[in-house]
Design a protein around this nucleic acid. Structure first.
Lengths: 193, 193
DNA sequence: ATATAAATGTTGATTAGTCGACAAGTATCG
DNA sequence: CGATACTTGTCGACTAATCAACATTTATAT
């Protein structure tokens, strides 16, 4: 894991190639059966190059899942729509549900690899929510209160979706409908203070 | 134009990206309107890298056209078919016709850029014909006779196709039918001697 | 016409990717 | 059990790609 410049065109290309190769392989075989050798063979890269960017295939999985979630998020929350409030939170929940279903299907879910994957999801949710709250500029709300609320919402969403996905006894829409008032009350309280 | 190892994976990738970018641009604008800057922008490569591989866009055009002709050739002359004699020569002519029509359409043919392009075509035709004649092993034919005949055929083909493409008053098949006996007589003579 | 902008071709310093090799771990088979 | 083969993570030497800068030339516009 050499230190590299994240903006170097070569670095972006190489990572893109590694991740695409990895995604392609995931469609064909189980994660545990994929070797680093497989990945670089398909990407036509040297094996040492892989280790310049990732510690091992587990870290690659985390990074790749974070990327895929970013795509999912972008498709559910278009930038130009400028969503806010309840509609934004609802969409966030649906995006996480959709992504959760897709990735567990893709990984054949033999292990609970979820923990590391959740990291990236929570961080991205947190970012979207913080951006929104920052724009809203609630009265009498200091930065720490905003941060706490954003954290509560993002962690809550991931929590209920993980719980939901284990059994999936209701639709994603129903889950979002159920949970929405609770999450909105967190925001309402922020504006009331 | 630094000297580079043609087998280095990075070199193959870089050239492929430059050529693909160039081909994409040719579909959008005239060759003369394409700058080196355009090419590297689209390929997300540094401009200096371009000059490691090509002197200028004209040399890139030559190399790219040679590549495209190699593809055309491969599709008209499948390796496993192991064509020989009249059928091979006929296919060669049709391949050149097809390629000539495609590339002139692609380049909007405002200039006679053909000369440099012909270089690669003739060389590849010559290679195919020589391979075939080598296998046939005609009696009493020394190497120099084979080479002369291969040159005559390859240059003849390019000549008649360039002439034909200017007006295109007959189909490619008709042209091939017309010219075939003449070309075959060159080969027949080689075997008779 | 002249200024402004853009493209060209080249250079030297830096960084990333390639290659071959290594020791160490771990399946797999006889 | 031992032999064989494969994967892993790391290393140093080498080569290619990036970047910023430069002097020139070529378009574009005012």
């Amino acid at each position: 894991m050499r230190r590299v410049r994240n903006n170097d065109p070569r670095v972006k290309r190489t990572r893109a190639m590694i991740r695409q190769s990895f995604i392609d392989l995931l469609a064909v075989k189980d994660f545990e059966d994929i070797t680093v050798q497989d990945i670089v063979d398909r990407a036509e890269l040297n094996r040492a190059t892989f280790y310049n960017h990732y510690q091992d295939k587990y870290q690659l999985l985390d990074a790749t899942m974070a990327d895929l979630f970013a795509e999912t998020l972008a498709s559910w929350i278009p930038q130009d729509a400028n969503l806010r409030g309840a509609e934004l939170v609802r969409r966030l929940m649906l995006a996480v549900c959709h992504w959760q279903v897709e990735t567990t299907r893709r990984l054949n879910a033999r292990r609970t690899l979820t923990q590391a994957m959740e990291e990236g999801v929570k961080r991205q949710l947190y970012g979207v929510i913080m951006d929104c709250l920052d724009q809203a500029q609630p009265p009498h709300a200091d930065r720490r209160r905003l941060e706490r609320v954003a954290t509560m919402i993002s962690w809550s969403i991931v929590g209920i979706v993980v719980q939901w996905s284990a059994r999936r006894e209701e639709t994603a829409e129903a889950l979002a409908e159920e949970a929405l008032p609770y999450l909105m009350s967190l925001i309402d309280r922020l504006f009331m203070s």
